[in-house]
Design a protein around this nucleic acid. Structure first.
Lengths: 340, 340
DNA sequence: ACTGGCACTCGCACGGACAGAGTGCCAGGC
DNA sequence: GCCTGGCACTCTGTCCGTGCGAGTGCCAGT
């Protein structure tokens, strides 16, 4: 009992030391730096068991031990207390994010902030369109037979599409169209917008029928296609910091995966806003993220997050600190977007 | 005469070989791979002179020669022919950029394309606000005393700002305001918009005076502040490719400078759309770009480029090829934005 | 003016020796 | 029965010396 207890304590000590030193940690150093109340020899026995169970491993015979993915997982699940942010950090978050002028500004400030707090690569997702609602639809005439549709969501996200019409359109029709669209869609969640479109076409006044049909087609693409999820990425310079060996091999595949966006977006799809999601090393299905850990959480309402944000770094990272930072930034972003 | 001639030929050969092999190039290899019509010994003499003049250098005694920044400069200015793009490349550009749905899509596709063509880091600037004109100004009521201003430029760029009003506003006033703003600003270049604002306030009908004044303040910030220039960056994975030694030291400062954006924007400010601008190594004032070269050109009209795009890579790069790629993409982007 | 030959200089890769860290195991103590 | 001190062992990283190869500079000859 007290047995197992201490073994876990040893694991925690190994993780902490390894994270801060980047050197495989040996029994002697452990005994010195932590008050485990036992001698190095005893610790060696515990470490042998931990290795047997797959929580730690030695890079080569006669180097210290290093946590495995499984070891980090246990650490995150059972051994780490939530580390409260320092006052300075809270202040920094406020100072950094206040004064953002628009959505993009909020998100790009957040990404820089996160990168700076965690010294890792930060990733922030734009509010998912499918979970947003229409605040306003604007129609602007660009040319005689060309309109521009502008969608503004309740989170401040703006999407635009150009629509080519088969025939010329007059200004009055544009105005009517605008009123029509707004009364039909105002406040409608984008995920439900698809259902509204057929009604719209049917109920349109005769002389607008054709126009509405054309516009609706484009609108469907914009509103309903789940594609348009975007990411803001920052802090990639942090990848070039420590030993490139932090990641198996090079950072190249990781950078490629980040630029690809798809991989990260898939991960983001799984977050909710109440608990911080941690994926460690091999737990990430995608090959390029093997050797990396991903810490993320949703922002916005707990049950219906608007989007996600998080960080990507080596498995050897400060999980408690990073989890705290990610959560704190997500809360703040959630507030900012809720009130705007 | 024929003397100098050949010496330049030798320099060209050195640059070409070094760029493709990444090994310092020696006299013997040069004689073999190029038909210079003279023996290695003669080439050695030429190289001694070139070194004397500062065009090449040897990393250590008894390695081959490597071009200096000055050597690359001469190569770019006088020794390189414009390399026409292959048919496949032209096709690739079209296929890649057609089908872009909006401005952001055009730019992010461009950046990916450019990164892929040149295998370097690509940078694309959003159309500069100061050189754009107002296509439409939209006012949306977000809350009783809060409006959202949306600016759409002739290049399709959309900017938004939230305005808090001291008193509640009714829907009718919003509509009047919209009309007022659009008739005042439609087609006005943003750089000239500042002059229009005072008139606007003075000429506003009495009951709108206060509202117009409040809104105008924000409008000034949005329209006139030159700040809001944005960049899209891609292909950073290419930095992790070759010898990290391509850049003196590590890629870290370079990545930081890229994320900083300011540095790159300052460089972009100098481009015009008719000639490709090349800055080699030390020619870049900023420290982080020492050891890197920057190839850029403006897109849009020759005399009034909308913005710039380019690539950043090691000084040891394929200048003719990259210059051709950058120019081709810029032309295509220019066309796309002109017609939208 | 160019060429072939030659001596010289270095960087780099290879290999053996060495020191240090860390382990596993075993016998003895609380 | 669990913990501890001691000891032999293993393995890596580093240092140093050597040999090789590439490339140069110079000189005498054509």
């Amino acid at each position: 009992m007290a047995h197992d207890e201490r073994r876990l304590e040893v694991l925690r000590a190994i993780v902490q030391d390894y994270v801060s030193s980047n050197d495989p940690v040996g029994s002697k150093a452990l005994a010195e730096r932590h008050d485990l109340g036992v001698s190095p020899a005893t610790i060696r026995n515990d470490m042998a068991v931990l290795e047997e169970q797959g929580y730690i491993t030695q890079p080569h015979t006669s180097a210290g031990r290093v946590p495995t993915d499984k070891g980090y997982r246990l650490f995150v699940d059972r051994l780490s207390a939530v580390k409260p942010l320092s006052m300075a950090e809270r202040k920094a978050i406020e100072r950094f994010l206040d004064g953002a002028v628009d959505l993009h500004d909020v998100l790009s400030r957040s990404v820089r902030l996160l990168a700076q707090l965690t010294r890792q690569v930060a990733v922030v997702q734009y509010p998912t369109l499918s979970r947003s609602a229409v605040r306003h639809l604007e129609v602007v005439q660009v040319a005689a037979a060309r309109l521009m549709l502008i969608l503004i969501t309740d989170t401040g996200r703006v999407e635009q599409r150009v629509v080519d019409c088969p025939v010329d359109v007059d200004a009055e029709a544009v105005a009517e169209l605008r009123t029509l669209l707004n009364s039909a869609f105002n406040g409608v969640r984008l995920i439900d917008a698809g259902d509204t479109v057929p009604d719209l076409v049917d109920n349109a006044p005769q002389h607008l029928r054709g126009l509405v049909a054309t516009v609706s087609a484009t609108l469907m693409e914009t509103l309903v296609e789940p594609s348009e999820d975007r990411l803001v990425i920052g802090g990639t310079a942090n990848l070039a910091r420590g030993n490139a060996l932090d990641f198996r091999g090079t950072v190249r595949p990781l950078l490629e995966a980040l630029e690809e966006q798809v991989v990260v977006l898939r991960l983001m799809a799984q977050v909710d806003a109440s608990t911080v999601l941690v994926r460690i090393g091999e737990e990430n299905a995608h090959e390029a993220l093997t050797g990396a850990s991903f810490v993320s959480v949703g922002y916005g309402k707990a049950d219906h997050p608007l989007g996600g944000l998080g960080i990507v770094g080596p498995t050897r990272m400060d999980y408690p600190g990073n989890m705290a930072a990610v959560r704190a930034v997500a809360r703040y972003v959630g507030h900012l977007l809720a009130e705007s």
